[in-house]
Design a protein around this nucleic acid. Sequence first.
RNA 1: GGGAGCAUAGCUCAGCUGGUAGAGCGCACGCCUUACACGCGUGAUGUCACAGGUUCGAGCCCUGUUGUUCCCACCA
Length: 882
Amino acid sequence: MSKELPKAYEPQEVEGRIYEMWEKAGCFRGHRDPSKKPFTIVMPPPNVTGQLHMGHAMDCTLQDILIRFKRMEGYAALWVPGTDHAGIATQAKVEENLRETEGLSRYDLGREKFLDRVWDWKHKYGARIVEQQKKLGVSCDWDRARFTMDEGLSKAVRHVFVSLYNKDLIYKGSRIINWCPHCVTALSDVEVEYQDKPGHLWHIRYPIQGEKDKYVIVATTRPETMLGDTGVAVNPADERYRDIVGKKCVLPLVGREMPIVADEYVDLEFGTGCVKMTPAHDPNDFEVGLRHNLETIRVLDDHGVVVEGYGRYFGMDRYEARKAIVADLEEQGYLVKVESHQHNVGTCSRCHHDVEPLISAQWFVKMEPLAKEALRVVKEGETKFVPDRFSKTYINWMENVRDWCISRQLWWGHRIPAWTCDECGKLTVSETDPTQCCHCGSTHIHQEDDVLDTWFSSALWPFSTLGWPEDTEDLKYFYPTDVLVTGYDIIFFWVARMIFSACEHTGKPPFHTVLIHGLVRDDKGRKMSKSLGNGVDPLVVAEQYGADALRFNLVTGNSPGNDMRFLPERCEAMRNFANKIWNASRFVQMNLTIDKVALPKELTQEDKWILSKLNALIPGVTENMDAYELGVAAQKVYDFIWDDYCDWYIEFTKARLQGEDPQAKENAQNVLCYVLTETLKLLHPFMPFLTEEIWQSLPHEGDFLMLQRWPERKSELDFPAEEKAVDLLIEVTRAIRGKRAELNVPPSKKAHLTISTAETDIFTQGIPLMKRLAYASDVTVTGVSDGPSSSAAAAQGLVEVITHAARVFIPLAELVDLEKEKARIQKELDQKRGQLAGLEAKLQNPGFLAKAPEQVVAAEKERCETLKALIAKLEESAAAMG
RNA sequence: GGGAGCAUAGCUCAGCUGGUAGAGCGCACGCCUUACACGCGUGAUGUCACAGGUUCGAGCCCUGUUGUUCCCACCA
């Protein structure tokens, strides 16, 4: 029944096979089961034509750990996967490809044909990221995979749009928006990234009209926008300029007459205290312009190029125009001075070209009414962020949120369901394509060209993927979802929008917990990026070390919400851990003669010890999982397996397995298998492949480890006395090894130990274990009074090892350097006496005795007593050495 | 200008509700001890940034300081 296993774990051989097995058996499917509680996660949909990167790997791993854990806990677990059409990113990629391969632009093809190309692209590359995710072992329900431009999801988008429009929460208006001249589209506020860039502050003279040689000097960082100036503003409190308010000045190079106005907005301290007003290209100027009725004149077109009517500047892009204008100003004597000036420039989060604020007719979602409920659910804890500090980030943003610009001048996306009537000019907004204007009945209507911001559809993801707006069974059962796992970088883009969308459209927050993780950085702490070329491909890592090792690396050694560095050597350590478990189970299997596991009635003290440790581990790990402390939970399992199970328990069992007693052999096998199996369950969410593979080859009931029930603590398996007893054996064993190492005695040189202890039962039972682990040829256990005194031992050529529980005598005295040994004992004595002094002071402190909890006081007292006993022994030993 | 995070062993980082400072890697010494050299055993290394405070007791709580990173914000 047991097969020959390779000496080292080979993830490459295992992972694909195991995944296929799970998938074929339908293990990932989420079933509505009225007898179970649902647990639902929706996966943040990656870009449909994207590639899996380390951030995805971390995101997927965390989700997979949670969903596997809950599935094992007996929930009806559903993890909904899917992909996002990622409007601007995907369109840009296809356009680039089109340009490179055929030399065509999207306009050459026309909207319809171009969209066909994007769909081709989607079909070609859309499956790639799914395949990559599978390599990581994600257990999502692929049958329910959704795409943001699926029919059903598109329906949801339209439904929401119409509903918001009808509630006056969507409107079309001319506003100053962020425009990317490179992507040629409007952007929302969150798609603008501000960067500090070195720039200049140009001081320009604007002549005052009708007054010879009188000027007002404005300071600007963007001289090219002066073409669109329609005024100059000063602060009303500014003494310097009081006399010119109300007068007019003349715009150099253009000759336009413009009013000089007074507005609080102007900062007296900055620059010259005079600001040129360009309402069409600056959000503040736009506001000032509204207050003072200034004209709004656009001078840059959608590509950031100067429009007609400005002489030689026509056709120049923003930067050329700046140069030319500055040169002309200087030549004509308008330029007063140039200062260097650091300033904050908005750039497009996609292409990083400078954003051009400009006035444009766009569609907006009115945020204030929506933010109200979205704030409430977080403030009142209906939706919690983990770690909690991110709720502050969220609240702060939501309280100051401005209307959301949702129209994009792209082709790839959900086309805005609004039609303009060619006759009456009014809008018809409808879920189904209308044939006529809803105002005048004219059939001459045309649809908006623009599409919606990608995030408009992803905002609906938690419910649109479950069938909303239909009242589906899935929606009733699985919605609201439970946990959303994502990086802090998309709280504004996505999480916030999901929350207010869900509240508005479903009346419920979309999830009760948002588990936030940080960024995965490179080994030097830099962000992984294409341009730096420092990205580490998760699939390459998984191939090299195994997906389990990668997962374990990503989940340990960091804490929620904090960035982590990706260190390849940590993968190696995790691979080693996987191998450790592999070999532990290989050991178990090599000694296996049973085909069914049951805990024996007769348990040895070491059996009870490991069972008791396991019993403590289970609730500990479970609590950490419940608290989303996944890294801590993983670390606990790691420590248990490596330290308790492998280093000690397996070694303990060798005495029985290699002994003569068949019953003892079988008992040991049963406990070994039992503990290993339970541990595999605890480890499974973290290392699914390895654990499933091992479990399959051990005696088991059921078909898959991943569908086994999560372990529970069993009170009948608590053995505090034995736990303590074996801890003592371990302590003494360690001390003996330490002494031998110090004396450079190789393990092959066995010695006859004499152990003098008050715990004769424990040590007598432990003789077989100690023989093996403390390199003893034999062990004699005596009571305290029967053992030799230190001086007698020294006389007999015995080395003395002193621990709290016992004194051990080893016949190796000829190897001891007496002076060194004396010094060592003295050092230990000093140390222990120091500890004792501190402890006694604490125990004499009335404050401590009165206020500390009883348990703590008792523990400290016990510590004090054992310390005293140890010191007495050491003192005797020191005295014996003279 | 607001807000947040981080500062713990040579390096990278854990440290649960305050109760004798931890891991991995690295380092030193010794081991092919019949699961594992992707291993075993043993060992060394820390004014837990600084200064105050609360407490019987602080790496953990409070205040301030310094350094550092990030987010938000319209200073032309």
